[in-house]
């Protein structure tokens, strides 16, 4: 995650405290895992404002059923379905599970 984005996430988390949820739209397993890890356990590259800052935010991917169920079907169709079909959904969700597991044990 870019340094500016990390700063923005940190600012929102500081301002709003509990109740902030991170929703990812990342296109592959690696970026999903890295971004999820950044907002849960801190910046893994130790370069940005979230280095050593374990925000522990709940993180979801837009391809997860929990998210899909909360979006009107026609909106999901227009906004997400095409990308879901073209990307490797299973690998992305596996990357997310891995980041959550690492965050839980950190």
């Amino acid at each position: 995650m870019g340094l500016e984005d990390q700063a923005a996430v940190k600012r929102v988390a500081d301002e709003h405290g509990n109740g902030v949820v991170v929703l990812l739209g990342t296109p592959d397993a690696e970026s999903t895992q890295t971004l999820a890890q950044t907002v849960v356990a801190g910046d893994p590259s130790y370069a940005g404002p979230l280095a050593g800052v374990p925000l522990g935010l709940p993180v979801f991917h837009v391809f997860e059923p929990e998210v899909r169920d909360q979006v009107p079907a026609d909106v999901y169709e227009a906004q997400v379905a095409l990308m879901e079909m073209s990307l490797d959904r299973e690998a992305i969700l596996a990357g997310l599970r891995e980041a959550r597991r690492a965050g839980a044990t950190a």
Binding site: P27, D28, E30, S31, T34, L82, M83, M85, S86, L87
Partner: peptide, 18 residues
Amino acid sequence: GSGNVPLNNYRTLASLAV
């Protein structure tokens, strides 16, 4: 970490064909 841009775009185009 920016992915394979053409491949992703071609796959999206193919998904439109689906």
